[in-house]
Structures are given as structure tokens and as C-alpha cells.
Amino acid sequence: MLAGFLTLIGCQLLGEFIQRALDLPLPGPVIGMLLLFVGLCIHGNVPKDLETGSQRLIELLPLLLMAPAAGVFFLGAGFANQWPAFIAAVTLGTLSTLVFCGLLIRFLHNRNKRT
């Protein structure tokens, strides 16, 4: 499991290096994810250590997210006038995204089946 964790950290470090060297607007961990993905495609399977290491970490995601999420309760008076726009954007935006994607994928899927 620790060997798998080392692979993940190593990919992230490499990703951070590439980001700084090329001045890319992508975050280092995202570049690391793409590097690991390409690596897995070349290697052809997932090593046991990497499998358990990444699974443990993904399972713990709610724990890692709780502290930043708690900040919502401490945004302060500065954000008070932003709440209506925020709620409207998230609810209406998500509903319209679901409808849009549903109609789009059904159209593409039906067209795909016919040809």
C-alpha cells in the first residue's frame, strides 16, 4: 500500500514540476493524474499496491473534504449578498445541465444505433 502511495505522490511531484517548467494553467495533481493514466495504459494493468493505495485514498475522500466544506458556515458578512445568485446558479444550472445532457446523449445514441 505504501509503494502505491509513493507512486501517487511521485506522479503529483512530476506533475508539479511539469506545471512550473512549462508554466501550464493546469494544476499539478491533474497533470499527475494524466501521467498516471498514460502510464497505466502503457503498462497494461494496475499493480496490486497501487490498486489498494488509491482505493483507500478515494474511500477517505469525504474525510478530506469535511474541513474545507465546514468553511461554508464561516464565510462571513461579505458573502451574504451572494447567496441568492449562488443558490440560483447551482440549482437552475444543474437542472438545465441534466435535461440538456439527457436529450443530447439520447439523440446521439439513437443516431449511432441506426448507422
Partner: peptide
């Protein structure tokens, strides 16, 4: 330091994507 682990957790998402 706990939030720092979100970095490797992001990298880890490559595994389910590959699967």
C-alpha cells in the same frame, strides 16, 4: 496536512478511469 492529501487523491482517480 490532511487537506494536502487531496493532491494524491486526485492522482488516484486515474485508476478507476483506466478501469
Amino acid at each position: 496536512w490532511l487537506t494536502f492529501l487531496l493532491g494524491p487523491a486526485t492522482v488516484a482517480l486515474a485508476v478507476p478511469l483506466y478501469r
